[in-house]
Design a protein around this nucleic acid. Structure first.
Ligand SMILES: [Mn+2]
Ligand SMILES: [Mn+2]
Ligand SMILES: [Zn+2]
Ligand SMILES: [Zn+2]
Lengths: 155, 155
DNA sequence: TCCCTTATTGATAATGGTTTTCATTATCAA
DNA sequence: TTGATAATGAAAACCATTATCAATAAGGGA
């Protein structure tokens, strides 16, 4: 396992898109890599402040916008009034592709990877058909199930 | 085909949930029934003003919140900074269940019903499995494909 | 290594969709 | 018809996100 200077994998992608490599961008990407939660911009802001106290919230938003545009990060709306961000894929694919169960009552979000194989297969077929019929270049997809989680239904 | 007083189908549901039947609610539901577009609160406000000039924007928001909670209306986020609303199902199912293609460039939204049969079948299976495993009562789902539409890619 | 161009940043104000407040009005059961 | 109370409109408040702008830092070239 490589032990060299860490987290170089995304630097090339940033530079390739004409962006500069900065401490803020490194630490934000770091925060997203280290968690399995669905962080809001403010969550990231607070987490990142420890290692980089001077950072501004605007930088968080600007960086996230870039990362989403580059396809490194997903931006989600789970219905709680703020956007949530999640790494698409880690350097060695530690983050698996998955879909979401969203509780409309407590806003809890459950990642699931069960049944993903069948879904992926169907999605591939559907994407191909839709791309052709609607002349639409599909980049990614969102599948979310909404309902009431176990915690909320027992009350 | 019945010809009696129109649009009574939702009145029972409103009352059943403890809500009163009002002119505003009727006309808002009417606007949603009459269109195949994905209306924002302001779109509805402007459309409804013609028939009900005194109505306030706050009433639109309050009514939509109720309709979403009752399951008569879907609330979507297509990434253009405002929520979009769409009738779940008309009185006689004029509105078919469908999914969406969303252009991340121009924000255009395409409804599609192709491939829906396979999707529905898979979703039913997936929902059953997820409900049991995660003790989650699934009420509905969202499937959206993101990408670049034909208009945007030719430029 | 130093310079220079310019992308990036932090602080702050502005924006704008949505929610809240509150006094007035309308619904509907009795 | 009446009374309890839900619903409404106008306006202000809220608050996540974006824009502004002067200061700073990245990095290609000398
Ligand atoms: Mn997730
Ligand atoms: Mn639609
Ligand atoms: Zn819950
Ligand atoms: Zn487009």
């Amino acid at each position: 396992m490589g032990r060299g200077r860490r987290d170089l994998w995304w630097q090339g992608r940033l530079r390739g898109c004409g962006y500069r490599v900065t401490a803020g961008r490194e630490i934000i990407l770091d925060a997203l890599t280290k968690t399995d939660k669905h962080l809001s911009a403010e969550d990231i802001y607070l987490a990142v402040r420890k290692a980089c106290p001077g950072i501004g919230l605007a930088t968080i938003y600007r960086t996230l916008e870039i990362l989403v545009e580059m396809g490194l990060v997903f931006k989600f709306d789970f219905g709680d009034g703020r956007a949530r961000y999640e790494l698409v894929e880690g350097p060695n694919k530690e983050v698996a592709h998955h879909h979401h169960l969203v509780c409309t009552n407590c806003k809890r979000v459950i990642d699931y990877t069960d049944f993903i194989e069948d879904e992926i297969e169907l999605l591939a077929k559907t994407e191909k058909g839709l791309s052709k019929k609607y002349n639409f270049d599909i980049k990614n997809h969102v599948i979310q199930f909404y309902g009431i989680c176990g915690n909320c239904s027992t009350k």
